[in-house]
């Protein structure tokens, strides 16, 4: 399986989020949250409602203070590190995390087989 390139580390905001549409599906399939050197990648899919896209605008996945991931469809808030819902409509559920591959040259990739699970969840 090929790994799918997303971007270089230095193309991410130092403290923020960015969405990606690596398979050209017309909307972001996943997003990365970067805080300094720490990265988390999650599927752009709120566990509260199957298929619900989460951002309110391109790359708008975080709360105004940057402290949580927010689904702007129905207001669910998630812990950035764990993906666990901490407030809102889906308590006890979590975002689906995705593995990231960080190459020595700074390129970030996601395993294609992880992306291809999209229809199974």
């Amino acid at each position: 399986m090929d790994d799918v390139p997303l971007c270089r580390m230095d193309e991410l905001p130092p403290n923020g989020a960015r969405g990606f549409d690596p398979l050209g599906e017309g909307r972001d399939a996943l997003f990365i949250v970067r805080r300094g050197d720490t990265l988390r990648a999650y599927r752009n899919r709120c566990p509260h409602w199957p298929g619900a896209p989460m951002a309110w605008r391109k790359d708008g996945y975080l709360s105004p203070d940057g402290g949580h991931i927010v689904c702007y469809a129905h207001g669910a808030r998630f812990d950035i590190d764990t993906g666990d819902c901490v407030q809102g409509p889906c308590p006890g559920q979590s975002l689906q995390s995705l593995p990231l591959i960080r190459r020595a040259d700074g390129l970030l990739l996601v395993p294609r087989d992880a992306l291809d699970l999209r229809t199974a969840s």
């Binding site: 896209p53 605008r57 702007y72």
Partner: peptide, 24 residues
Amino acid sequence: GYQSFWGPGRHIFGSNWFWYFNSP
């Protein structure tokens, strides 16, 4: 750059055309 949520389409009850977006 805003995120479409549902639509465009047309409802049955009310017959209204609709297009929903996520919002802050």
